[in-house]
Each structure stands twice: as structure tokens, then as C-alpha cells.
Design a protein around this nucleic acid. Structure first.
Lengths: 124, 124
DNA sequence: TTCACTCATGCCGATATGGGAATATAATGG
DNA sequence: CCATTATATTCCCATATCGGCATGAGTGAA
């Protein structure tokens, strides 16, 4: 279908280049977890987690595309390792909300202080 | 199709009760962002972000189901607010990796110290 | 009550995605 | 070169999900 006849119906925003989507899948998070102790070959992951080999490979590919893991070939084994730096977007996203929370608390504190000052002003 | 003839092909693990999946969608994260300043009605969200009303409502529903937002009815307006406490799963998940990172650094330090001791032992 | 307003749902089409099975590709050992 | 081991890729199906559109539901006002 030509793009100019585009219907308007489009599913999810064609992601998988997005860290948030990469970690959305339980199995993918399991793979990441399994890599915490350190570098592992695909086969090890397959037996550690109980997933099929193609399944693991595919998830590794997604994780790889978003940079959450890096691969190193050693002979015919492909060793994958975490790339923790790539969690940064997620970390920053989260931080934004903490910041917001703190700001709110600060404002509330200011408000309370203001109230107290008014109180003490009336008392003198 | 009867369940006992179940083929084996199953798409994603039927989520949407998973916080990680809830924030996987860009639009959903936009909704959350829009709520940072504070409680807002659906209509406000619709005009702030430029999304259709049903679209916003549906995303709010998902966010609601995983507890990331709470709703309060005021007349015919439905006011949604962030439920920051629900960000905790993210924190914990992230912490696991930061912990792992620190542990690795510690181990490396230990290793270096060990090396130094061996060195100094040989030097005496 | 009836109309207007605000939001939630249901239905539908298009698409993205995950998993299984089989197969291709790459590296190692004989 | 051939067999084996270790991964990656392809094909296919069932399902999940998104967005648009129309409609239903709840509340307030005339």
C-alpha cells in the first residue's frame, strides 16, 4: 500500500530500539539478570534460564540492538555481557520523578513554614 | 480452538499487569510526565498532549491497572494523579544492577590489592 | 426530564511480537 | 573436506496491542 493511502491504523510505535521496550519483556529481564554475575555464553544462558536456544538468541539480539548487552566472540562461543551504562536512560527517567516528588515536598514545606510564620505573626 | 489443542504459539506473555510493560509505551510515559506537576483531568491531558480522548483514557486505564496512577472523581471530571510509590519496582530492579556494578568494582579493588600485596611480598 | 459535557468502552483493522521448528552460518576437530 | 558444536536466522502462527471511530455511562444544568 502506498504511503499516501495510509489508512491511519498503526499498532505500537514500531519500537525495539528503545531501552524501555527492551526491558519490558520478562524473559529479557531474566536474561539480563542472568548476566549480572558476569559474561556468559549463549549456551550457558540457555541452560541457566530454561528457554530454547533460538529464544535466547532472539532476546539477546533485541538487547544488543538497544545496547544493553555487548557480545565478544571466543572461538565459536559468543560471550555476552551487560552494558550497564545503557541503563542510564531508564535511570534518568526514574530520577525525573524523584525530583518531582522532592519538589513537591519542598513546596509543601515552604507552605507549612509560611503558615507557621503567619501564626507567630498573629501571636505577637 | 479448544485449549487442549493448544498449538504452542503464544505472543507476548499476556502482560499489562506488569509495570515494566506499562511504561514501555512512549505515549504512556508522556501521560505520566504530564502528571508530574500534579493532578489533572482527562480533558487537560488530552489537550496538553495532543492525543485523542479515547487514546488517553485507554492509556490511563493501563496505567491505572498497574497502579501507576490513581483516579478521583470530582463531579463529572476524573482527576488522575501519579502514584509515585509504584515506581518502587523500578528502583529495586535498577538497584540490583547498580549493586552488581559496585560489587564488581569492589572485587576488582580486592584483586588489585591482592596483586599489590604479592608485589610487596616479593620485594621484601 | 432533556440536553450538554466529560470520560470510558466496544469494535475493528493494521501491525508488532514472541515462541516453536527447521535451517543457515561459523568455528573446531579429525 | 566432513562431522560436530554453538549461534543466528527464517518462516509461520497465534496473540497482544494501538489507534480511530462510534457509542455508552455518569453528572450537572436548564
Amino acid at each position: 500500500m502506498p504511503i499516501w493511502e495510509y489508512n491511519g491504523a498503526m499498532a505500537r510505535s514500531s519500537t525495539t530500539s528503545d531501552v524501555f521496550n527492551a526491558i519490558a519483556e520478562t524473559h529479557r529481564r531474566e536474561v539480563l539478570d542472568a548476566l549480572i554475575p558476569g559474561e556468559k555464553a549463549v549456551g550457558e544462558l540457555v541452560s541457566d534460564l530454561s528457554m530454547s536456544q533460538p529464544q535466547v538468541s532472539k532476546h539477546l539480539r533485541v538487547l544488543s540492538e538497544v545496547g544493553l548487552v555487548k557480545c565478544r566472540a571466543e572461538g565459536r562461543r559468543h560471550l555476552y555481557r551487560l552494558e550497564l551504562a545503557r541503563l542510564r536512560p531508564f535511570h534518568e527517567w526514574l530520577a525525573k520523578y524523584e525530583q518531582a516528588l522532592n519538589d513537591r515536598l519542598d513546596r509543601m514545606e515552604d507552605y507549612l513554614q509560611e503558615l507557621q510564620q503567619k501564626e507567630s505573626g498573629r501571636e505577637t
